[in-house]
């Protein structure tokens, strides 16, 4: 059960090898988190994450093979994960790929892969878990969006569009769950130094997975529906969102 300070005791992670997910789980295990289901394609990498969590104090860290793009199996998977945990206090939706923008712009399959992995798959997974949590009468879905989806830039518009779609979907889902005991927390990090962004030039206000995790924990405590990380992104994007298009197009990066 989530406690009065917003801390979960159990969690399902979709995209369990995500570095932000890993940092968040470590932070939550220091509080109340004891039982985790890690879902993803790379079972070996997930087993490592599981071992780390158990070393940090998790009582249960179960690895489940899961492909977020195979949406036909999502409902069954949600049920299986719920049975493994008893109560699902938190569903962390962290699956995502950056893709190669130049490839995505020219190869239809590459573009579709980014959109399916970042948007279609996670959205379908949220639908499946929302039904499970609704039945259960409580729980929280935490979804990793991105500032890239707040105003889509030409430099990474396929990735940005996928996150824009996911973010909008999560907002709508959040409203549809009002009064059910289930809530949605949308996380919008800026540039995070992880494997995903390795080799790229860090954008201004670049942050780390640990810092994003700390911002998420704080948002859980406060019950905030949206997390900007770092928090200044909220104000920066309040401006960028309304910037005239002629200027926006010419922004560097």
């Amino acid at each position: 059960m989530n406690d009065a300070t917003g801390m979960p005791q159990s969690a399902v992670v979709i995209g369990g090898t995500s570095e932000i997910a890993g940092a968040l789980l470590q932070a939550l295990v220091r509080r109340r988190l004891r039982r985790v289901v890690l879902a993803g394609r790379d079972e070996q990498a997930l087993a490592k994450v599981a071992a780390h969590l158990q070393a940090a104090g998790a009582e249960q860290a179960t690895v489940m093979a899961f492909d977020v793009t195979e949406v036909a199996g999502h409902a069954a998977f949600a049920g299986e994960a719920a049975r493994a945990l008893g109560q699902v206090d938190m569903v962390l939706v962290a699956a995502g790929i950056l893709g190669e923008q130049s490839e995505s712009e020219t190869d239809p399959e590459a573009a579709a892969r980014v959109l399916t992995t970042n948007q279609t798959g996670p959205a379908a997974a949220m639908v499946a878990f929302a039904a499970e949590l609704r039945r259960q009468g409580h729980g929280r879905i935490v979804v990793l969006s991105s500032v890239a989806g707040i105003r889509v830039r030409q430099a990474n518009f396929v990735y940005g569009a996928s996150k824009a779609g996911l973010d909008g979907f999560a907002q709508g889902l959040s409203d549809s769950l009002a009064g059910s005991g289930v809530s949605v927390t949308i996380v919008r990090p800026g540039f995070v130094r992880t494997r995903m962004t390795a080799g790229m030039d860090p954008a201004p206000l670049a942050t780390t997975a640990e810092a994003v995790a700390a911002d998420i924990v704080r948002a859980l405590e406060r019950g905030s529906p949206v997390v900007w990380s770092p928090p200044a992104m909220r104000w920066i994007f309040a401006v960028l969102r309304v910037l005239p298009r002629s200027l926006w197009r010419r922004l560097p990066g």
Binding site: Q54, A58, E59, Q60, T62, A82, A84, L85, G86
Partner: peptide, 20 residues
């Protein structure tokens, strides 16, 4: 034995490290 057993059946506890 938990209060959840009525709805969820017995819990699967892989990687159980015992109580902290």
């Amino acid at each position: 034995r938990t209060g959840d057993s009525a709805t969820h059946g017995s819990q699967k506890r892989e990687g159980h490290l015992g109580r902290l």
